[in-house]
């Protein structure tokens, strides 16, 4: 029998992995994928709560989130491509202009 806790643990593991990826990876594309991972970990938790509490609202909300995330990803990827064209690099250590 799979219970709510199992879903939530998977969601937490996915979220932590995503956060770890954001912090340690150097490539912007990978970081971006890790971000998506974190987003979807949250989605998973939402769907799980929805299922176990018999509220359909959560699942509807997840659809909206996925839709918005798709649009957001396209914008984000476009930015990364533009940045790569400009700087010939997508590594974060090359992008440290925001300091004194």
């Amino acid at each position: 029998m799979i219970r709510l806790e199992h879903y939530l643990i998977v969601s937490a593991v996915l979220f932590s992995l995503g956060l770890l990826g954001v912090i340690v990876r150097r490539n912007l594309l990978i970081i971006y994928m890790c971000l998506e991972l974190m987003l979807n970990a949250a989605n998973l938790a939402l769907v799980a709560f929805s299922r176990f509490t018999n509220h359909i609202d959560g699942q509807v909300m997840v659809f909206f989130i996925i839709t918005v995330a798709a649009a957001e990803v396209s914008v984000g990827l476009a930015l990364i491509v533009a940045l790569y064209r400009k700087r010939q690099s997508a590594h974060v250590e090359d992008l440290t202009l925001m300091k004194l």
Partner: peptide, 17 residues
Amino acid sequence: LRLLQTGNIQTYTFLFA
């Protein structure tokens, strides 16, 4: 305080997390 401002986005993320 200036030492904290590395400009590296991952440092900020780490601190934030």
